[in-house]
């Protein structure tokens, strides 16, 4: 009974943060800021849902699959965000107009001048 409630609470928290992530995708201005919302909230939210599933199921093969799913989400989601943001910057997708500093662009120009 208590286990069920705790598991449901984790699933609810996960869904809430997933919702914030989606809201961030809609509201934030450019691809980099959107990635921030998408990676952080979706990683945490999905991990919360999987952890809730693990608590509901206990230590059987189903629960372990949920735990290993958490580990893989934590490993892969930041790497995907890194790849997308790097590719976006190389494809010269502009940053939002609020942006105040871009060291990456400066260093890239310097490299192109020297070579």
């Amino acid at each position: 009974m208590i286990r069920e409630m705790v598991g449901m609470a984790f699933i609810f928290i996960g869904i809430t943060f997933d919702f914030f992530g989606v809201l961030g995708l809609v509201r934030l201005p450019d691809v980099y800021n959107r990635l921030q919302a998408a990676t952080k909230c979706v990683t945490f939210g999905s991990a919360g849902i999987l952890f809730g599933a693990f608590i509901l199921q206990g230590f059987n093969s189903f629960g372990f699959k949920a735990l290993i799913g958490i580990a893989f989400i934590f490993l892969t989601s930041p790497v995907a965000a890194h790849a997308i943001s790097r590719a976006a910057h190389r494809a010269r997708i502009p940053l939002a107009k609020e942006t105040i500093v871009d060291e990456y662009e400066k260093d890239k120009e310097l490299k192109e001048q020297t070579t």
């Binding site: 914030f20 961030g24 609020e98 500093v101």
Partner: peptide, 14 residues
């Protein structure tokens, strides 16, 4: 940030 009505961000790459 997402729930704030003005979306208070000051982004940049450092």
């Amino acid at each position: 940030i997402v729930l704030h009505p003005l979306v208070p961000i000051k982004p940049g790459i450092v």
